[in-house]
Amino acid sequence: MLKEININILGLNNLNINIDILNNKIKNNNKEIKFNYEIISKLINMIVLWKYDYGRDNEFDSEEFIIELITDNENIIYKGKGNYPENYDDFKSLLGELV
């Protein structure tokens, strides 16, 4: 069962979103925000079909993403820096709606 989702956007920008699925709580950079189950479901649906590692580019300060799905018995990590999944823009747009 999914317990927690952590979404980190790193580099020159710094975003940390912690989604506590069990307690219906979301924190955006440690500030609590409204829990939106519909958007969270859409985000999960996108993430589960991603590769685990999109690799890195050679630029300075390109954006890095690290997403963790934490279940009872698994800790699944998806990451990339400068290289992103095909639908990363849509993912970021949905994230924007969440926060």
Partner: peptide, 9 residues
Amino acid sequence: KGNSSLANS
């Protein structure tokens, strides 16, 4: 696209 708040060299 989106929040174009990226910066790089």
